[in-house]
Write a protein that binds this DNA or RNA. Sequence first.
DNA 1: TTTT
DNA 2: TTTT
Lengths: 157, 157, 157, 157
Amino acid sequence: MAGSVNKVIIVGNLGREPEVRTFSNGGKVCNLRIATSESWRDRNTGDRKERTEWHSVAIFSEGLAKIAEQYLRKGSKVYIEGQLETRKWQDQSGQDRYTTEVVLRPYRGEITLLDPRRDDGNGPRDGGSQQGGGYSGPSGYSDERNQRPDFDDEIPF
Amino acid sequence: MAGSVNKVIIVGNLGREPEVRTFSNGGKVCNLRIATSESWRDRNTGDRKERTEWHSVAIFSEGLAKIAEQYLRKGSKVYIEGQLETRKWQDQSGQDRYTTEVVLRPYRGEITLLDPRRDDGNGPRDGGSQQGGGYSGPSGYSDERNQRPDFDDEIPF
Amino acid sequence: MAGSVNKVIIVGNLGREPEVRTFSNGGKVCNLRIATSESWRDRNTGDRKERTEWHSVAIFSEGLAKIAEQYLRKGSKVYIEGQLETRKWQDQSGQDRYTTEVVLRPYRGEITLLDPRRDDGNGPRDGGSQQGGGYSGPSGYSDERNQRPDFDDEIPF
Amino acid sequence: MAGSVNKVIIVGNLGREPEVRTFSNGGKVCNLRIATSESWRDRNTGDRKERTEWHSVAIFSEGLAKIAEQYLRKGSKVYIEGQLETRKWQDQSGQDRYTTEVVLRPYRGEITLLDPRRDDGNGPRDGGSQQGGGYSGPSGYSDERNQRPDFDDEIPF
DNA sequence: TTTT
DNA sequence: TTTT
């Protein structure tokens, strides 16, 4: 449809290890189960309440699936951006059923790891990088950044 | 959970009229059915493909439900911001079923109408107020805007 | 930095025509000026107040720049997704100055037109394709949608 | 303006301690300086490049300012949702200058702490809370969650 | 400079 | 069931 947007942003923790499945055509999907939660105080009793929401995530982007598989673990905190998709399937009795997932397709999705870098003896990888010059010129614009982030050959975070 | 975010942003069109239901306790919910769609070109055949996604929206915020009921119609284009919630219910045979919706709760959701103002002969509804000075002072900050947007006693868009 | 997100989402109207500039190296930028506004009721006087915010947008993605140039006009309503960037420049007196813009770089930005299709006598431009079956299979997943949206050879909205 | 959205989402780290200032009228603002960064590989040299972007954040929401002051420190990782605002001021020579900030006003902004809970001897704070029943009833909806999150009397994360 |  |  002209002019539509379908976007989900989740920051939460994995409830279990990522699961990767390969299809007969060579394609892959990586499934995540992510928890978010909100808390509030009950209007009547004054008790503190909390509810956890569980999100099903399906990553079809090959680069992002590889990252998810390699770097995410049960308990990892992650930022996920994808789109809502509901798919129809049939249960054993032949009845229509629907499942809604947060889906990351190529070019339409993002993953950002939010776990602190466990510093395992190797030096700091995330020093205090600074604003960085070289970002001007006559037009006031530089084009050095107009490139595809490489997802595939390195750790992009 | 500490540090989680659960956010959905949808821009799409209503597939039918908003539906409002009142609960026995006086509460209300306004349900919307919103379509988004994406298109792509098939990698093999080169054909143009399109898929429409249907989103179920449930508005529990009283102010926003009123706005939805009053201003949204079948076909309306709208920006919706809410959170993902999956609720469990039992079908006739007693089996567990799950439904995922985009939910707008008080203080956690937003609606913005995107239909052009149809000027149907009635004059302008809002003077052409402009950028408005008075936005400085010693600190460089003014506090005049730090107020709750009124959703309830007027049309907020 | 590990694990960061820099995202701006704007829905507003163009205050003037898009401006395209070409750099000596062949690169292009398309600049937009977009207004958003919010209104509130003054806490003391009860008067209705409104403030318009003007956003400077710079599109470096070639495909998106082409779309912006071709389809956006003064007054157009548009959804923009980009990232915040502040660049430094020198004014005539040699003093450092800073300008903050919403920047759309390749693979990191989105444009969605929100103007209603003005049907100006020319027939429909796109058949009424519908939900489209073929979206299941043993895995419950189909891969037909895992493709790059084509921005370059057609109108993507 | 009818139908506009002005939203910024930042996940990054504080470059310095939060700064709180009080105005003569009793109002407060909490200012943050947050870094995000992106990296890419240079198209020509193949070198890994990185650029850090610094964001100025101004929190006018009293509840959120209190949280920021109390829980954020230099180095803290945080999710911030606010709106873009550009304000005009005069420099010493009387020239107009503009500063663009990410602003959190009451009811229009969000903060989520992303630092892992330093477990200082007290037991686990974030046990595996579960989906939680009690979320159904005839309508399939419960209203227990339709309440204002309390920001003011407790730690909301 | 837009929109309501 | 919407929109293009």
